[in-house]
Amino acid sequence: MIDVKKLIEEYRNAAILQKEASRDGDYKTANKQYSKLIRIYKILEKDKDLREKVLKELLKDENICVSSWAAAHCLRLNIYVDEAVKLLEEIAKREDIGIWRFDAEMTLKVWREEGKL
């Protein structure tokens, strides 16, 4: 059985490190953390109960790196869609967060145009 708290913490750490490394141009760290996020996403994709618990918690995270990744995964998995869109729209309006604003804008743009991520 998967430890929900441990999975949340692993996702959280990977999301923070990935976004910060991307911002800093550290592609090796960014790629490594991205791979961790994809591995966790695949676990969530296969387990509805687990994804509901994990993503609900991560969407509320105060760290924008974490909540924005969680919102994108929610859109992809078609779960908590209203909350995810609202969060990404709020992030996209902020002018004080640089690349994360652009990430949110592009995530919403692709999702709205394609109907999926």
Rank of each mutant, 00 (worst) to 15 (best):
L75W: 01
Y34T: 10
L37T: 06
S67P: 05
I99T: 09
I43K: 15
L17F: 08
L75R: 01
A92K: 09
K36M: 13
K48H: 12
G98K: 12
T29G: 02
A92P: 06
A70L: 02
E83N: 11
L55K: 05
D82P: 00
V85G: 00
A30W: 02
V66E: 04
K56M: 08
I79M: 04
K32G: 06
R23S: 10
E57V: 12
K53W: 12
I64G: 00
L37P: 05
I99S: 10
E57S: 14
K36T: 15
G98V: 07
L58M: 05
S35M: 11
R23G: 11
D49A: 13
K56A: 10
K42M: 14
Q18F: 03
E62H: 09
L58E: 01
Y34S: 11
D47I: 09
D47L: 09
E90N: 12
D103E: 05
Y41F: 15
Q18P: 01
K36S: 14
E83M: 06
I79R: 02
E62M: 06
S67E: 08
K56C: 08
G25K: 08
D103V: 02
V85D: 01
N78Y: 05
K19A: 13
N63M: 08
D49G: 15
Q18H: 11
D82E: 13
C65E: 06
A71S: 06
F102D: 07
I40M: 10
A84N: 03
K48S: 14
K48I: 14
L37D: 04
L17D: 04
N78D: 11
V54K: 07
R51E: 08
L77M: 13
S22W: 08
L44A: 12
E90W: 01
S68D: 13
I99K: 09
W69P: 00
D96N: 14
N78R: 09
E90C: 04
F102A: 08
K53D: 15
E83A: 09
L44F: 13
Y80G: 01
N31F: 09
